[in-house]
């Protein structure tokens, strides 16, 4: 579904990773590993089309959109939330969750324990709570490819379990996921260690 061949990315003439090739097939869960600065976040950004300055080829097969972007859900390192808006206002204008009914997002927020914060400003929330807002978009969305950068960071143990089981649900539903994490309790079907592709 997603085929990567000979992918290299250079920053300031130094290659972060070189000649990376792998396939992502439906139902697969790939964990990106590597030391800090090995290019995990960069690889995610390259795969979802933010960074275009790469060498090699990335091809999406069987995707509906000609650009292949609408089929990708991206959860970045940064939350892309506006501090001055409330949680609901943020969700209304969130470009991860458009097309999803608000009731579903609210249900997910409740599962993660944020049901009393719908009208609070984002600036009043903790980092973990902010992460939960965008994770509620992740849980509600239905895409074929998920690219998640540190999905479990700043979360409490209980929420980690909820999100992990949601990841499993998506895999069982035929979606495929690439994620970066230092956690060990998610069972990935495949590991890619970027240290092996460093130069």
């Amino acid at each position: 579904m997603l085929t990567i061949q000979g992918l290299s990315y250079a920053y300031s003439d130094r290659f972060l990773f070189k000649n990376l090739s792998f396939d992502l097939v439906p139902g697969e869960l790939i964990q990106l590993k590597g030391r800090n600065g090995s290019g995990k976040t960069t690889l995610i950004k390259v795969l979802c089309g933010i960074l275009k300055n790469y060498e090699g080829s990335i091809s999406l097969v069987n995707n509906l959109d000609s650009e292949g972007r609408n089929e990708i859900f991206y959860l970045g390192h940064k939350n892309a939330l506006k501090d001055n808006l409330t949680v609901l206002e943020n969700l209304k204008y969130d470009y991860r969750s458009d097309g999803i009914e608000l009731t579903r997002l609210k249900e997910n927020l409740a599962t993660l324990g944020l049901e009393n914060y719908l009208f609070s400003k984002v600036s009043d929330l903790s980092e973990g709570q902010k992460r939960k807002i965008i994770l509620s978009c992740f849980m509600a969305s239905n895409k074929s490819i998920y690219l998640l950068d540190e999905p479990l960071i700043n979360l409490d143990e209980e929420s980690k379990k909820i999100v992990s089981s949601e990841i499993e649900n998506k895999i069982n539903g035929g979606s495929s996921i690439i994620f970066t994490s230092h956690e060990k309790n998610i069972l990935a079907t495949k590991d890619i260690n970027l240290d092996e592709y460093a130069t």
Binding site: K45, G49, I50, R69, Y74, K78, N79, Y95, R96
Partner: peptide
């Protein structure tokens, strides 16, 4: 600046706006 710092611009690129 704000959209750049908080990662909103990343999302615009992902969605192909």
């Amino acid at each position: 600046k704000e959209d750049y710092d908080d990662g909103s611009l990343d999302l615009f690129y992902v969605r192909g706006f």
